[in-house]
Amino acid sequence: MIKKASNKYLYLLALVPFLVVALLYEILPLATVIYKSFLPDTGGAFTLENYQTIASKLLYRKAIMNSLKISLTSAFVGIVIAFFGARAAHERPGKMNRAFTAVLNMVSNFAGIPLAFAYMILLGNTGLMVNIGKELGISALANYELYTMNGMSLIYIYFQIPLSTLLLIPAFDGVHKQWKEACTLLGGTPGVFWRKIAIPVLMPSILATFSVLFANALAAYATIYALMMDNVALLPVQIAGCFTGEVRIRAGLGGALSVVMMVLMLLMILLTNAISRRFQKGGARR
């Protein structure tokens, strides 16, 4: 009996490689970043200096606001398009549906530098669409400014669409055809069905997807870096700048900015969870 028990604990050794990797490259680095965010970069003891710098310097305040704005807008537009896309896929199984999911899957890996490059060719200063717009006199295309916050939001929306649609498609399996029939029998129009039945049922999935999209946009870095280098007030760009810039490494400030970003993601998860619980409760109350 005793031998058996000790044997069992011997197996814990197999956990060691996993723990070593997780500790060295996930837990310790994160813990140090948080810890260093409370140390001044000039040396010294515990301080909130870095957080004060973020709160007082216009650049960092702007970076947070810009990041929030572009993440919220792109997540919102992404979820709306995903809703209609997933609904269409749900209503129409068949060849087109298969092509649709195949395209979504393929494009879901289309991000980072290649995406930035494609948009530079399309909508950059001498981009194809810009030239076509000039020749045909479409001013919205001819004067498109890719290298601005608004111009870049189109790229954000682009990479949100495949992710959000792929996440929402399975959720629509939960909307049963019989409910629609029942609703019609009781005199409900399709509009009533979607507003009162389908969307509330889908709401938890929609909210969860929204928070994934938000985090996805908040952390997006490669695409933006390829377009703007370090010259843009966005959180991930400023964070990377603190560690890899030509000037000295500011681990404290960069750490504090990273903590801000993680807190924003966490708040969004908590917020969407709280709202989603209300919808689930509403469903349970009969």
């Binding site: 997780a22 994160l30 140090t32 970043v33 870095y221 890899t244 990273s258 993680m262």
Partner: peptide, 26 residues
């Protein structure tokens, strides 16, 4: 706990992960 450790990278991938590893070991 294994699951939690495995799921954290979903949210902290990319910039934060790279700068934390960099600042710890550089």
């Amino acid at each position: 706990y294994v699951q939690i450790i495995c799921m954290i990278p979903y949210t902290i991938q990319g910039v934060i992960l790279s700068v934390s590893i960099l600042s710890l070991y550089v």
